[in-house]
Nucleic acid binder design. Structure first.
Lengths: 208, 208, 208, 208
DNA sequence: AATGAATGAGCATTCATTCAT
DNA sequence: TATGAATGAATGCTCATTCAT
């Protein structure tokens, strides 16, 4: 029965680390801080994750799993490209909303070169490129022939989706703060989908 | 004459820090490493920048200046929206290519909450939003009325442009590496411009 | 069992710091020096005392306890003022002899304004003033009425007692060094007691 | 004419150092702090005093001169012991009042073992002992015969006089703060003189 | 499974001083 | 005479990890 407690300790470390890494970046968070906030003893980190880097690996692994599950749900061979794009954007936005800190950690660490997670990031990135391949394949593109444009568009769309979640905290103390409810994210998905499919002119069409 | 040497030392610290922060993130780079790589003595960092955080502030400040200059050059009131978008994307891509590490540091630190640079980031972000306001204003948008959509589209376009520079290092050791020459970036600008203006379908139109 | 070792390490840090602070003052002693002389690793200082200032706080706290115990032993309500003064001086001299470095650290830091120990010093000083109040109360003084004279005399007597321990090291390499044995301190207590009770003339009465 | 400016800079460094050493102790004050507060450039300290220790030497030297002058004024061969004691105490109290920080620095550094000023302190202490010799000699004591008692009483009286100046800052935020005007110090001199000459009973005689 | 003590390398910063100008 | 740049050692403290219990 002590096994359940062990699992809970591991989970608490994981969640606390996700939260702190998301807010302060991997390099600026110490194991002491994680252990303290999680209410566990410091040695538990080495015990359960083999060290600080092990937590980051577990985080990226977890994000990988969630992204894949989302993608499998969203993209269907037997549907139109437009519908797939809409469902992908909606699914991705939903994933980031549900697992915001986890998603932000993954995104942040994209830029950093932490040796311990480099391989993992490569593996994940290639898998996501393959996914994008599949999505754009519906449009009639072929990775072998159009790899460049697929890479460009794939990355561009993913970053476009992320953009709000990075900018929002910076604009939160603006004079007219936006209310980030379900309705907002419905509009967000809608605007991005239009932008993807028909360009900026279409994205602002509502306003006319 | 010794003043010139001082300036050179300060510049060498700045450039080395930019390079290291870009590759390993602010939190994972120590002042020792910066000083060693720059070939100066450690105390020079506190002397010239007031501490490690001072370098980061100087970096963000510098990026701010370069971005503003680029924007002033690219966006003109007396031109069409389409041309302005194309010149903005081209100018931004060019800025990131010329000052890649500097740009990546700014982008990376967007996500982190380093107290010492928080105010600076806020100031910069608001100024960039104001810029985007101007750009989209040409399209007939008004920030007071359409602030939400301007924020969304502004962020989305900036992140879209950045996307390649974040993904490229991850895809560089792929089986068929892309040659990142001027021609590539011309195509990159072209694809993103089409995506912005007319959507994904237009972006891939060449292929047909 | 490892707990005993921990306690010993903590004690060794404490004692070494007391010795070094007494000889060189708090500000001129570094944690490295303490750790080295105590034969422990530097980090143990922060671990056990929370930092260099924590040692000083512990030192003052300890002195506080010893002084209070001495005072309770020496001063009795049911005895004459003269006897109480003699026992107080004897007890104080004895305390300083037994815990010389500890006593000197406390005395030295009286003059310095180290923020971390300011509150502690205030607390201690007030408590000692209260003690003096009690002692002089036997003489028929009342603090509310005679606070000023009690403060003056209380301080004067304490500093008088300390005076030898501050001057001695300076006179130790004089041509005719004094032998500081029990007999010497008996005479010391006697002289000071006479000085207190009957003035300088009485203090030198033996010589006639 | 620039010589006058140089002298002023040197004086400003001296005075600032005296003030800071008195409040925070020699070891906790840095040359940067002194230079900054004095409004001069750091290198001026090495230039004018040969280093931080040089300031302390100059301070002790200065105190030495003032103490000697005071003693020569106060103690007269052709007067009674009682009058000499009274004038010595009054003169000493007056010296400390006028040069409080200077006096406190000298007193504080009595306890510390700073190699650079050790010789100076020894020299000064012996000279003060010789002075006390002269004072107590009026009472019929002879240093060769009664050296021990002279040392004890000399130190005791000096520390007694200092006692108020050390305790006062600690008691300053008491519920009933004392007003430290000329009248107070007249009473202070009076009480100490009585204590010296006739003991504690005499010191409180006024109250009856 | 879990802890708290312990390590030693590393952190950013400040130290007093020197030196060319 | 006076300055500001520069040094390298030393400052107090925290780092991630290990280990005996």
């Amino acid at each position: 029965m002590s096994e359940a407690k062990a699992r809970e300790i591991k989970a608490r470390i994981f969640e606390t680390a996700v939260r702190l890494f998301a807010r302060k970046s991997y390099g600026l968070v110490g194991v002491r801080e994680i252990a303290k906030e999680a209410g566990v003893s410091i040695s538990m980190i080495s015990y359960h994750f083999g060290g600080k880097a092990g937590i980051l690996q577990a985080i990226i692994q977890r994000y990988f799993e969630l992204f894949n599950a989302m993608f499998r749900d969203a993209v269907r061979d037997d549907d139109t490209f437009d519908e797939n794009v809409r469902r992908f954007i909606a699914g991705f936005v939903n994933l980031i909303r549900r697992q915001r800190d986890l998603s932000m950690v993954w995104f942040s660490e994209l830029n950093n070169d932490i040796p311990e997670v480099h391989e993992l990031k490569l593996h994940h990135s290639r898998a996501m490129a393959t996914d994008a391949n599949k999505l754009l394949g519906i449009l009639g593109l072929d990775f072998n022939r159009d790899g460049e444009i697929i890479n460009i568009l794939g990355s561009a769309i993913i970053h476009m989706i992320y953009s709000h979640f990075i900018s929002a905290p910076l604009l939160s103390d603006s004079p007219s703060p936006v209310i980030l409810d379900d309705a907002y994210y419905d509009r967000y998905v809608d605007i991005l989908t239009r932008l993807c499919l028909n360009g900026v002119g279409s994205a602002v069409a509502d306003l006319d």
